[in-house]
Computed example of a mutant assay.
Amino acid sequence: MTEAGFSVTVPATTANLGPGFDHLGLALSLTMTIEVTTAPKWEVKYKDKEYAEIPTDETNLIIQTIKKVVAMYEQVVAPQKLVVSSDIPLGKGLGSSATAIAAGIEIAGELANLQLSSQDKLRIGSELEGHADNITAALLGGLTVSYFTEDEMEVLTFPAPPIGVVILVPPVALKTEASRGLLPEQLAHKEAIKGSAAGSVMTAAIAQADWVTAGRMMERDVFHEPYRKVGFPNFDDIRLACHEIGAYGMTISGAGPSLFIAVPPDTEKQVAASLNQLFPHYQAIALQPAETGAVITK
C-alpha cells in the first residue's frame, strides 16, 4: 500500500451535448482538488460552504467509492482525511457526482497501489455511475465518446475543442432522478433514427472542428430534450437569444438542471453577460473545455 500524502484534481464535466445521449462527455475548466492524508478515522472536510450539506463521514460518495474499488481487488486501506476544495457548483448539471467517483477511483488506486489502467478506471467508473459520459470525461479530459454495455466498453477521445462554453443555471433545480423520470420507456424507431443521425453528424462535425454544424445538430436531439425542456423557464426564448448573440448551439447539460451553450472561442464572457441581462433569473457561468482529466500530485 502506498503511503498517503498526495492530492488528486478532477475537472467538472457536461454530458450528452444534445443527441449524444449518455455517451458524449466534455471536461470543463472547473475543478475539485482533494488532499489525502492518513488519519485515525475516515473524514471529509469541505472548504467550500456550498458543500456544507454533503456527508463528511463514511457515507460520503468519495469514501464509498474508495472502499468499493479496493474491495474489488480484495484490498483494505487505512482511514484517510480528505480535504476538498472545489469551484464546481453542486447539483448544477456539471457532473459533481462523476467528479467525486473519479476522485475516489484515483485515490483508491494510489492508496492500494492497484496499478489500474485507464480502461480499468473507465469500466469501474461507468459501472459505479451507471453510464459512461461524465465519468470518462472526468477521468480523461477533453471530449469523450463512449460505448458502454454490461459486456463491452469502447472510449474514443478528442482534444478539448476550440470553443467557449456558457452554462446557464435556472432558478429552480430539477434533480437528476426526477429528470430521468421524465423520459419515455420507448421511442419510435423513426424518431430513434433521426436522433442517431443527428448524433453521428454532430460527432463528425466536432472531429472536423466544424462547430457551426455541430451546434446545429446539437439542437436536433429527440432522446431527452423534448421531455426535459419543461423544467427550464423560457427555454425557446433562450435558444432564440443564443442564435441572435452568435452562439453555435444550446442544449441541456447532462440530465439538467443547467443549459450548455457552445460559443466561438473567447466570447464566453460576453455571451454570459448578455444572457444574464436578458434572463436575470438564470445564472450564467463562462467556462472553457478542459484538456486534462483526473491527475494525482505527490
Rank of each mutant, 00 (worst) to 15 (best):
G142M: 02
M202C: 15
K92N: 02
D120V: 04
F6D: 06
T157Q: 13
V230Y: 11
S97H: 06
S86I: 04
L168G: 12
S196V: 08
A241G: 00
K49A: 15
A71R: 06
G93N: 08
T176P: 12
L168C: 12
L240Y: 11
N60K: 02
L182M: 13
A132N: 02
L182F: 14
A188D: 14
A108C: 01
K68S: 07
V155K: 07
N16P: 04
A188E: 13
L128K: 03
M72W: 05
D236K: 08
Y147S: 10
G142I: 04
L156F: 11
S96Y: 10
L30Q: 15
L82T: 00
V8M: 10
G18Q: 14
C242K: 02
Q288S: 05
M202Y: 15
N234F: 13
T99W: 07
I101K: 06
A102H: 02
I54S: 08
K41E: 15
S117K: 05
A286F: 02
E219I: 07
K194E: 11
A198Y: 04
A12I: 14
L182T: 03
A138W: 09
C242D: 03
K68R: 07
G256M: 12
G20W: 08
T65A: 01
E150D: 15
L116A: 02
A100M: 03
N60W: 05
I105T: 05
I163M: 11
L24W: 07
K269N: 13
V69T: 11
V172A: 13
F235R: 14
A100R: 05
E219C: 05
S118Q: 10
H189V: 10
